[in-house]
Amino acid sequence: MTQDGYHISAEEATEALRSRNAGVFQKIYAAYSEELFLLAYRWVKDNDLAKEVVQSLFAHLWEKGQQIEITGNVRHYLYRSVTNRSINELKRRSRNVSEEALQWQADNASLHEITDHLLLQKEIIRLAQGLAPRCREIFLLSRFEGMEPAEIAERLGITVNTVYFQLAVALKYLRNHLLDGKKLQ
């Protein structure tokens, strides 16, 4: 299911950084920044810090572009960089670094797996915009905010059954619309 609208080879990316080609650099940013944010968030579990990690990575690429050589797959290179930066930031702030982050080895199998996962998340975020307002609200509270159905029911003054009903509507909608009905996995 890996589908990304933008392909750039390691050589082209390296060349763009060397020559400070802002147009190409912006395309790289537009293509990858959101999934890098999702990946950083996976490690640091903190919105602001995740954004900071992504921004500082791109600022670094732009500033030090003369000395940087990207090899292999550009996306994978960025995934590794953002993971290293996330771990460093957590250590620097004396925050707990999860076993998952430390264990995560940037081998090809895990890279492909995590790419699929992040792209699925991107799709979910995009598709959630299309849910009816109440349904979307309940879905976001349940999934993005991690609230239990009973908590959501209490907060919104509705029955738990309504919460389950709306979550089912949301999940069905996402499944039906994902990749135009193609099978997941």
Partner: peptide
């Protein structure tokens, strides 16, 4: 499939990442 969706959605940050705003700042 539903389980995969359910779990993937749970790990999504509560605030969206705004690519355009991010690019502007950068």
């Amino acid at each position: 499939e539903l389980k995969q969706l359910w779990i993937a959605a749970a790990a999504i940050p509560p605030m969206p990442f705004n690519v355009d705003e991010g690019w502007q700042e950068l």
